[in-house]
Design a protein around this nucleic acid. Sequence first.
DNA 1: ATTAAACATTGTTGTAAATCAACTTTTTTT
DNA 2: AAAAAAAGTTGATTTACAACAATGTTTAAT
Lengths: 229, 229
Amino acid sequence: MKLTKKMTCNNCTDPCDFQSALAKTGRSIDEANIFHAHFKKHDVICKQGKEVTHALFLTKGWAKLYLEGLNNRNIILYILKPPAYIGLLSFFETPIYAYSVTALENSEVCFIELGLVKKLYIESHDLLLCLNKVFGKSVANIMNKIISINQKQIRGRIAENLIYLSNLHQSHKFHLCLTRKEIGEMAAISEENTVRLLSEFAKESIISVKGRDIEILDMPLLKKICDVG
Amino acid sequence: MKLTKKMTCNNCTDPCDFQSALAKTGRSIDEANIFHAHFKKHDVICKQGKEVTHALFLTKGWAKLYLEGLNNRNIILYILKPPAYIGLLSFFETPIYAYSVTALENSEVCFIELGLVKKLYIESHDLLLCLNKVFGKSVANIMNKIISINQKQIRGRIAENLIYLSNLHQSHKFHLCLTRKEIGEMAAISEENTVRLLSEFAKESIISVKGRDIEILDMPLLKKICDVG
DNA sequence: ATTAAACATTGTTGTAAATCAACTTTTTTT
DNA sequence: AAAAAAAGTTGATTTACAACAATGTTTAAT
């Protein structure tokens, strides 16, 4: 993490809900004391078990949100893509992060003091609604992950995550931002089986794999594999 | 579900945060139009996939909160014990329940119109803080469940859930409110393995089992089994 | 340019846990 | 009280997957 003065709220290309909330509650951006930081690929943005001191907002670069489980095994819950709230699931009255976030590429993050967030949260109806909406989506996502991990076989889980990544890239053809191990962590399976299944799917002409370039050739079939579990 | 006039906010023995929020925002209980219902054992209180129309508050009787997964297999996320918010994880801007709740015994539930909840949520600082606190706890709980299901073996998972139930009853000795199948659904394992492990633990003198009466004899060992996974 | 480190691949093996099957006991219904 | 349904139990069988091993390939560091 490296503080940066280059990026400020004033030159932000994609103003967040905090900015409009600030405006509506008659506060200036300067007094809000928001600061901006740059994270390099692989840098930890927030760490499971550590205290929550700021609301974090991702403005550039993708990141992974994951649980640090037993024996150094991670489970990636989802990929964060700007603009995105990072601290969302545990920033209000939970003092400790329930998960970690790491940059998948060089990223930019805004830090907003928790005290201010609470004030805005109370004063601004819109911000409240907006955050709760995102919150709800996260929860639905996580519920689905629980079912997936416990009740689907690895084939269905890999299919599910390929579809997820395809949606994220908004294309059937995309360049993976993740290693094979990380794909495995998304589906909560071993790295070896991830590789095996990717080549299996390729052999069956469901996808094409060239290194990190993936193309989904038969989406209906992939969806079917995902659905049957 | 059966509406009841016997139970009202005025004779409530355990007033909820909504009542104080109503008072603080200068509203009367009558205009709030809160209604109360009775659920018999096994009745569904709210249903996964259905629209969220009210905030629900459990005042009497225990209930299970669970996901309806694939092939009619459920995963119980936790047990609700009054006083408890039921609709918590998805009541604000998520229109659909992400989970189901079923009464484990005869129960009483208050229904509070979502419109009113939103108003109170915005007007009452205390209510907001309070709900978010409970929210945070739920999320932490669920994160833990994900790790448990994916990375612990069934022995560790059953141990974990026995400890959970013991805490819930605030005693090492308790009468199960759940069938063996449901215990399995808490640990996300099969009914058969649940039975097997309970008798295994009994044989090892870690617990004593007589029908649905459980006593934890060696809590330190049970904790160890839970921790090593 | 060379070496080290991280990443990817494929085959094999052991095992945890689901499933199957048969049966007993308890609870509920008629 | 009898019948039916639900809940609980136990052993045998099957299978999905993690773990291991061995080796190739790409990427990063000096």
